[in-house]
Amino acid sequence: MQDFGAAFGQAFALIAGFDPALMEIISLSMRVTFSAVLIACLIGLPLGAVLAVGRFPGRGALVVLVSALMGLPPVVVGLAVYLMLSAAGPLGVLQLLYTPTAMIIAQAILVTPIIASLTRQVVEDMHGEYDELLRSMGTSRVSTVATLLWDARYSLLTAALAGLGRALAEVGAVMIVGGNINHVTRVMTTAIALETSKGALALALGLGIILVGLSILVNAGLMGLRKSAERLAYA
């Protein structure tokens, strides 16, 4: 139990002192995670909506596939991205391995199925309600997807949150493609793994507390937004 006490002390000291190394790790974590979730949203939201609205051959199989990919093991994604980006891989010329960009790519791949799948469920429900209206208005397919995504925007925050949680907590993929290089690719989760393996449990726990705190903050902010939207019947 003394580890917990020491951990809180250490975490507090690090935060209060605006420890530059810590700030660097936090800011890289945030940058990688938010970039990955943003990219995943740009792909996953339209993909999910098209899966909800579209009627095309292979749709059922695609729905199952996207849903199954929600459970992708991060280390496997890390390995796949590693193989793509390594010097001998097809994208080796880009020299992205062990850069934050590689970490963003890996996390975006992990998070996109989550956002696409949750989007499909949300949009499918809303489409059930809007379908006759939109068709009676002669709405085009593209415009239908856009209308549904816009009207579901607050409900879709939940999908983005799920993706954010996954990306923020993930360690396997960023460890493999980022390499946990100090000042370059070290993020919260890889730092925690490293400090733990070095036996610096208090520091690791301190970083963990900060990570959980950040996660709660982001979630609370977005949830608050959603609640106020619901109160106004926008969601």
Binding site: L133, R135, S136, M137, D151, A152, A233, Y234
Partner: peptide, 16 residues
């Protein structure tokens, strides 16, 4: 379709 309009018993309004 652009000159045919339909109103339902239960109005379906957008979340706007």
């Amino acid at each position: 379709s652009q000159r045919v309009a339909l109103v339902f018993q239960k109005p379906v309004l957008l979340r706007r």
